[in-house]
Amino acid sequence: MSNKVIHAFYNDDEVVLDAVKKVKAANHHIEEVFCPFPVHGLDKAMGLAPTRLAITAFIYGITGLGVAIWMTNYMMIQDWPQDIGGKTNFSWWLNMPAFVPIMFELTIFFAAHLMVITFYMRSRIWPFKEAENPDPRTTDDHFLMEIPVHNNEDELTSLLKETGAVEINVVEKH
């Protein structure tokens, strides 16, 4: 099976957005679009599902809050209660107002860091990872649309030309 793909270059965000819509309307599968900056509405036009990272952040935040509650209760009430300025040391609930800052900070700490780690894992970015954008211009001022070819090279090329592509290359993808 051939792994031929078409790389169509665009140099304007509005043009690439319209092009994606037209290619989609002609029932072609868009493998990927590489952009130098976020294009508003591109994910919807490509039919990408909404990201669920915000939901994970909420779950991580709840986890952080739970850890803070467990930690303050275990350390201050269960394991080694101390008399500190006469504050309640036999009930977590009565001592709770003093723990609010800790609960708040750990909620934020867990939500922020675990969400970012999830993002890095899902998008496969980490130190020493090789970049996968096929052309260096895609981080400067060019947008690159990648479409797999199934014996319809000429049809695709003419369609992409129509949509305003500034350069079209057919390449073998490894």
Partner: peptide
């Protein structure tokens, strides 16, 4: 330093969501 950032449409979608939540 760039962690192999490639700028896929999906990456940008997540990037914007992460920025907003952060």
């Amino acid at each position: 330093l760039s962690f192999g950032w490639s700028g896929r449409a999906k990456d940008w979608q997540r990037f914007e969501e992460v920025s907003l939540v952060l």
